[in-house]
Design a protein around this nucleic acid. Sequence first.
DNA 1: CGGCATCCGTGACGATACTG
DNA 2: CAGTATCGTCACGGATGCCG
Lengths: 208, 208
Amino acid sequence: MSPRRSYDQFCSAARALDVVGDRWTLLIVRELLAGPRRYTDLHADLPGVSTDVLASRLKDMERDGLANRRRMPPPAAAYVYELTDRGRELLPVLQALGSWGESELGERGPTDAVRAHWFALPLLRALDSEGLVEVRLDEGDFHLYAGAEDGPVYGDGPAPREPDARLLLDAATCTALARGELGLPDAVRAGRVTVTGDGALAKELRET
Amino acid sequence: MSPRRSYDQFCSAARALDVVGDRWTLLIVRELLAGPRRYTDLHADLPGVSTDVLASRLKDMERDGLANRRRMPPPAAAYVYELTDRGRELLPVLQALGSWGESELGERGPTDAVRAHWFALPLLRALDSEGLVEVRLDEGDFHLYAGAEDGPVYGDGPAPREPDARLLLDAATCTALARGELGLPDAVRAGRVTVTGDGALAKELRET
DNA sequence: CGGCATCCGTGACGATACTG
DNA sequence: CAGTATCGTCACGGATGCCG
């Protein structure tokens, strides 16, 4: 096993980079913030990562306490990887990177991959309330556990229970939000995001 | 020149990692947050980086708008590298990494390098006020421009003008602060940090 | 078929030597 | 002082094979 390559600096930022600075690691964390995932699903949502590097990173993340490997209860008896609490604490790091990267996003290039739940991070940033939010995009659906203390931060597909609000938006609006060009209240006011639901969260989103 | 290796993902966090995800890049940013620095000084404060990688990263950072290469005014006619505004905007990324890495800091290993100004980031985090603060450690002196909007975020050596406050602390206290085990007000109250100066900032630090 | 391990070509990295 | 040149090594990316 790899005796980890370290910067050997007595500095907490350098220590963090010792653990999460390797190529792909933080993007694997981004995937796992959507909840437990199988190896094959991770590989499918991270185009370009080679099979051995993915396996190696997952082992490193287990060793470093970022993730666990767990057997799903039958009948879906497969192994899944899920973040530990420690791993989920990397959310602010991904948010800081995502905020900084907003102005680097630019146009979607012909070789750029997209997954619906990659918009979860910018939407969580744009949303300062708490609650379960279902989001419907052209690319697919996902849901956000805004303000959740533990468990997944977001997830693929429709919300697992009745959400506090539903958001419906098109690709252009979604991109504008992801670039930080548009705030969520502005987008709602401009009619570019349709908010449905009876919860307090839905009312708040429609009003502010 | 390197046709940059990209993740090719339409995601702002992935875009950020395209720019700053290479080995050493964020640590070079950490160094340059201390103000303009010469190549040789960067190399000296980043033990382990090879000369060609450092040169290559600096070129990449110029190309990507993170840093500039500038000739210092005589008599110190040398080339220095300094962050652009865009580069300085990476401060929240380094702070998020540093916060997360606090619990990874552990003991100082025998091979760990240390520089006084590496404690600038944790101290800035521990300090929520604004002003110029001079810090004196066993390892050396540095100063913080807390709350500064532009220009360097901190610097090596004593403050260039009369600071709003001076902090004097020993290695153990500094480490405890860097680990997040101790807040700055607690450390002051426990007498582990000596605050001098007449400014409002100094008074505030002594009182709270 | 999902979950890797193995092999291989390429490029990134680290150490040292050297040059304007 | 500020890099460039060279070189060995290792990490990465792609393909393929294996095993439950």
